[in-house]
Design a protein around this nucleic acid. Structure first.
Lengths: 389, 389
DNA sequence: AAGATTTATGAAATCGATTCCAATTTAAGG
DNA sequence: CCTTAAATTGGAATCGATTTCATAAATCTT
């Protein structure tokens, strides 16, 4: 190993960074060797800069509460009291502190606050994927409500992945978030329940009657029923069901139950080739069309679990000369913006209300310390009839 | 004030919570008075429970690194080394530590880590609003890349609000995030630049040639030009321009510039009533239709700054008996999923690549300590011709 | 075999806030 | 004017981790 031909002074902590930055700024190469073993891995003093350009911002050390206290000639305690709006601080000192904060451009280090206060003012939202307009609307609303209430939103996509979902649950244990909203559930509730010890969980859209937690959702059985019933009322008998969500989600199970209920009510026995549960995108809708198209006995109507699937299906059907709804009636789900544009009959979900309610339940939960209630809010569906049925 | 008829023992910190929880569990009412004045506001000992029900989870105290150290019969330092995968820990002790962590279900408190390490592994993304599919796609991709790289995503909507945007910038100063990605900019760059001292900022979609920060964006002038040129090539002369973003954004300015360039190239002088800059939703597209419909001299083609506006416009036009593109040609922007469904000609933005590039630039920026480069990545547009022109 | 490295470990300091506890001053009550 | 309660203030402990610094044991070098 290279042996420096001169003795190297110990560089005080903090200074070494500045040195490197300065040399970087001068566009020179700097190599500092220090032989103390611990430097090797804990704070690597060996730097080499090998070219390039750009402007370097070496930030000043951020002002801390101690700086403010010193400048104001008061104790940290008093400054903290001003920050947190405690009573029992005289107007006079309050003004001194505020001025010092202003002058130093002081902003409290939120990690220190979180550590000490043991709360984070952050709520995580788990969504399978964001590009589904249903979920992006949900998240948009939730962010709005959270912001109103002074909370931040940590955003996670589970990508319909069980393992991903479980790994994100660790955020609760690591005290990184105050609470968790699940908009879908890949794992069984019993897998998730233990995490309640570490903080509140709220279900939104997704639901489970076993779970003793607040939830905002819709009666999916009713949703499936309403949609199917509408198709039946239009005179259809051979109706295909295609759900939007994979896995063992209650949501899709409920919808399917509603479909079956409606069909049985008029005494139609359901053929196995009428059930599809693996499509949940526009592309999925297109694929669905070809599957149906190739059936010996083609259905006359399709109940889809999302407007995305419905639009893909209609798109591909039209391309193949089908007239909608005469050759094939299609009903969607959600009432996404695209539904209006395409004249799609659909079962409307009150997304805004859903998101708002869930977030409000969460905030309430957090603010009422650790009391866990199982407040269940069920919102109504609405059938929007357009031209596709 | 109520005077307790007996002396009340001082309740040790920590126990009081448990007491309350236990009494709650028993569904009794408990009132604890303590007369020490400080309790009044700093930690309120006065509880009263007045009914209700539910299950109470009184979490165990979370295991800390000290607990792990004690159980393993080692020091905190060694445990920390195992957590952070430092070398110089013998296999034997490593196993001891891992076992202790397992047994205690230990998860490090991330706030303590952030405080000590002075980094948060969290990146904030500012988006004007999420329900615009362009932005939701962007965020989806960014979250994916961030997750790959081990970062979390804090999600903020600025709602096209200058003040909101500035207030969110404080997150950087409060060390709550390692970096910030802006997908739109309400404020002038000079307002934002000072915050660079506190951490890296990356521009995505939005851009500003003055800003010496990494950015991933598209040549919006070219985008505006390509779209307009296409309409001109189709034989149109009276072309209305409608941009998707309000405010002084470079993006819309650039696009407008491209439009003007294309028009001037063939010697058409632009009428003031051909320029609209305040519509950016489906509803906005509908409104736009009526404005155009009421003009004495109706245009034959419209260049819109987003597929949303374009679809609203087409929807309303068709409702009023227009044939597209014969009576009115419309070109969109973005190539959102809806464009294909509606057969909308559009200027496609490579959203995935845009989001991925921006996030990669950010991660690189964070990992290369504080070196600030002005790496600018410009991605290409693509014209997608369908049936609306 | 002596000196120089490398490996391995832990006690104590530190990150930047809040909370506890004690002490002092001011106001209210009788 | 004395007693009691309320209003102020600050020093030290604490939150739960990482990093510094010191020191000892094992391994190389020559």
């Amino acid at each position: 190993m290279y042996q420096a031909p001169f003795s190297i002074p110990v560089i005080p902590r903090g200074l070494e960074r500045c040195l490197v930055h300065y040399v970087f700024y001068l566009k020179k190469t700097l190599v500092i060797f220090q032989t103390f073993q611990y430097n090797r891995y804990e704070n690597d003093f060996i730097y080499a800069y090998l070219g390039g350009g750009g402007i370097l911002y070496v930030g000043d050390r951020m002002a801390t509460i101690s700086d403010v206290a010193e400048r104001a000639g008061l104790s940290r305690t008093t400054v903290s009291r001003v920050i947190n709006q405690h009573p029992y601080v005289s107007e006079e000192k309050k003004k001194l502190v505020k001025q010092a904060m202003e002058e130093l451009q002081y902003v409290p280090n939120s990690n220190a606050q979180k550590l000490r206060k043991q709360k984070t003012e952050t709520i995580a939202v788990y969504v399978p994927r964001l590009t589904n307009p249903f979920f992006s609307q949900l998240v948009e609303t939730m962010e709005e409500v959270a912001a109103e209430e002074g909370f931040q939103l940590l955003f996670c996509q589970t990508r319909y992945n069980k393992q991903q979902e479980l790994s994100y649950l660790q955020l609760l244990r690591g005290k990184q978030i105050d609470g968790l909203i699940l908009t879908s559930m890949e794992n069984h509730w019993s897998e998730i329940e233990p995490y309640l010890t570490y903080g509140p969980i709220v279900l939104c859209n997704e639901y489970d009657y076993e779970a003793k937690v607040p939830m905002a959702h819709l009666d999916q059985v009713m949703g499936g029923y309403i949609g199917t019933k509408h198709l039946i009322d239009r005179g259809h008998q051979s109706i295909v069901y295609c759900s939007s969500e994979p896995g063992g989600s209650r949501v899709s199970k409920g919808r399917q139950e509603g479909y079956i209920k409606a069909m049985q009510q008029i005494g139609i026995s359901i053929k196995p080739e009428w059930m599809y549960t693996d499509q949940f995108t526009i592309e999925g809708g297109k694929r669905l069309f070809y599957r149906l198209h190739n059936l010996k006995e083609r259905p006359t109507a399709v109940f889809t679990g999302s407007d995305e699937v419905a639009s893909g299906l209609i798109f591909e059907a039209r391309k193949n000369g089908y007239r909608i709804p005469d050759d094939l009636a299609v009903i969607g789900f959600d009432d996404q913006p695209v539904a209006e544009l395409l004249g799609l009959t659909t079962v409307k979900q009150p997304v805004h209300q859903l998101g708002r309610t869930a977030m409000e339940l969460m905030v309430e939960q957090i603010q009422s310390s650790r009391k866990i209630s199982s407040n269940r809010v069920e919102l109504p569906f609405e059938l929007i009839i357009r031209d596709s049925t």
